[in-house]
Amino acid sequence: MHVEVVGQLNAEHTVVLSSGLGGSARFWQPQLAALTPHYRVVLYDQLGTGRSPADLPAGYRIADMAQELFEALDAVGVDDCHLIGHALGGHIGLTMALQQPQRLRSLVIINGWHQLSPHTQRCFSVRRQLLDHIGPAAYVEAQALFLYPPTWIHQHAAELAGEDQQVLSHFPPPDNLRRRLEAVQGFAMSDAELAQIEAPTLLIANRDDLLVPWTCSQQLEQRLPRARLAMLEFGGHASSVTQAEQTNTLLVEHLTRFSVLPFNVT
């Protein structure tokens, strides 16, 4: 996979940024100015997306994505880290925390879930129909509707038009996207599994998220032993983009606490 290590390369603490369904490291651009002055930051294009070309196999799972990230971190010499994941990226973080808990100092999940909501399932079904029966251009044009609030789309129309063209020009093989959609739809963790996760976890949710009901984060908070929920009123599913300043403040507060305190502190 394409992996970038930026920021303070000799810092004691490493922050890994794991994107959602799109898989691209570019998603985290609004966070870099807040994180790179203090941390070593690892970004990566998930396998089969962006600068990490591959043909993903049938039956590809979130567990495979977690294993790929373990191997990537080993390759760049990162033994433990704070992981920040958006949606699917949060699923990767939960899986890592369950499989190799010693590797995660803390976890942040932005608009994630542990059981797929029927509402989110319906959204994914629509996206799959667009991909299969209309094509990539329609899939990309619809993507902003699931990610951003209507007023934000109105205010950033020209910027989004340029972004759509860039995404379309680098659109992944459709079979890869189908495999990734199936993986995220197939992800689930039981209450018993979540109860085993000891990583201190910040959950960030948005009340106006069109794709994932904010109650999914509330359910995670109730099941994870060391979780707290920060609720944003505005920002949609991709609030790390639309509410970057507020999101960055939450991230820095969380990372500061669990960088100063000893590893595994309550």
Rank of each mutant, 00 (worst) to 15 (best):
V78F: 12
V252Q: 09
L211F: 08
R103T: 08
L224V: 09
D175S: 13
L98F: 06
R228P: 10
N111L: 09
A144W: 02
T49C: 08
V167T: 11
E163I: 01
A227D: 11
G93A: 15
L116R: 09
S52G: 04
E221T: 13
G236N: 04
Q219D: 15
V252I: 14
L250E: 00
G186I: 09
A138E: 08
H2F: 09
E141D: 14
A25G: 08
S24A: 09
H119G: 05
E182K: 14
V6W: 04
I84H: 06
P57M: 11
R207I: 11
F70K: 11
C216H: 10
L210A: 14
G59Q: 14
I92F: 01
L130C: 06
P173K: 15
Q222N: 09
L160R: 10
R178N: 01
Q29P: 02
R51P: 00
T151R: 08
D164Q: 13
L131W: 03
S240D: 01
H254Y: 06
L21G: 02
T266Q: 13
R105S: 01
R127L: 04
E159F: 05
L73C: 04
L98M: 02
P53N: 07
V140Q: 01
Q185R: 12
E141Y: 04
T247C: 10
A161M: 12
G7N: 04
R226G: 03
H170P: 00
D132T: 04
T151H: 09
E221Q: 15
I62M: 05
P149C: 10
L194G: 05
P150R: 14
D191R: 07
Q115T: 15
D209K: 11
V41W: 07
V167H: 11
E159H: 06
Q121K: 15
S125Q: 06
R105T: 07
V184H: 00
N264H: 11
A244I: 07
Q31I: 03
L56S: 07
A11K: 01
Q129E: 13
Q246L: 15
H170F: 10
L116E: 00
E163F: 12
L220G: 11
H86F: 14
G7K: 07
G7T: 02
G7F: 00
A87I: 07
A192M: 09
P118F: 10
A11S: 14
G48E: 01
V260N: 08
L35W: 10
V260R: 15
A188E: 15
D164S: 05
I84Q: 02
Y60Q: 02
A183P: 01
V108N: 05
Q100C: 11
T49I: 08
A138D: 04
L94G: 05
R179Y: 05
R103F: 03
Q143G: 12
E245R: 15
S106M: 00
A63T: 15
L9T: 09
R257W: 10
E245F: 12
T95Y: 03
S52Y: 02
V6R: 14
L116G: 06
E182P: 00
H91W: 08
S117K: 03
L160C: 00
E221V: 02
I109M: 05
R226D: 04
